[in-house]
């Protein structure tokens, strides 16, 4: 059997401390919030920049008002998804699985609703600065949200498998699967909560301040 960096094989090779990978997940979950903050901050910047500039009164060309009902529905779905998952993450793993499934379902529904909104919207992408920010922000938000949903779904799938098999499996990291799972649930729920907070900000700016 071959030894490898992550999975040293053989008695004489000391495995890495088991707390490393869970800690990496904890820190990673927070740092990724920093990255997405700067990504969406660009849209916030564009929003205020173009709105303040309002070149030739082209911030909004024509009647550019997205349907507030759909906007509220989308924001509510995200918010519900994040709150349920985060609350459950602090309790038992059984709760986490159910909450995770609900969170993923709600999140996907929000993404779907977003694309339905594009179809029924009565302005196009070329209707001025606002329309640009609206499409750019909401579309990239929907796409980036799939990343978070994937992360949650991984936790759900693992919990599902563990329940079916009735046991944790061995991992090749010298950390128990339980510890990794708990860290994954904690980090993904923190990230998802933060991400949804950005979505709420998007709602406020795009629908209320717009």
């Amino acid at each position: 059997m071959e030894a490898s960096a992550s999975a040293p094989v053989g008695r004489h090779i000391e495995p890495e401390p088991p707390e490393w990978q869970p800690r990496a997940l904890w820190v990673g979950g927070r740092l990724i919030c920093g990255s997405i903050s700067f990504f969406f901050a660009s849209f916030v910047f564009a929003f205020f920049y173009l709105k303040a500039l309002d070149l030739n009164h082209n911030w909004k060309i024509g009647n550019v008002v997205p349907d507030a009902g759909i906007g509220i529905a989308i924001a509510a779905l995200y918010l519900f998804s994040a709150v349920v998952y985060r609350l459950a993450a602090r309790r038992t793993t059984g709760d986490s699985m159910a909450a995770g499934m609900i969170a993923v379902f709600m999140g996907l529904a929000a993404v779907a609703l977003q694309f339905i909104q594009y179809i029924v919207l009565d302005f196009g992408a070329a209707s001025g600065g606002y329309a640009a920010v609206f499409f750019g922000w909401t579309a990239s938000y929907a796409v980036v949200s799939l990343m978070g949903l994937y992360w949650i779904q991984v936790q759900v799938a693992t919990l599902w498998r563990v329940r079916r098999e009735g046991r944790m499996r061995e991992t090749e990291v010298p950390t128990s699967e339980t510890a990794l799972l708990l860290a994954g649930i904690e980090a993904s729920s923190f990230y998802w909560g933060y991400f949804v907070a950005i979505g709420v900000l998007a709602y406020i700016l795009l629908y209320l301040v717009g």
Binding site: F45, L50, L55, N56, N58, A125, G129, A132, V133, G136
Partner: peptide, 23 residues
């Protein structure tokens, strides 16, 4: 944003249509 301007016709950077190159 630059890519969207070129494909889906947004106007982030197009001055005549509500955008700004300076952005």
């Amino acid at each position: 944003m630059a890519g969207m301007d070129r494909t889906v016709q947004t106007a982030f950077y197009i001055p005549g249509q509500g955008g700004s190159a300076y952005l």
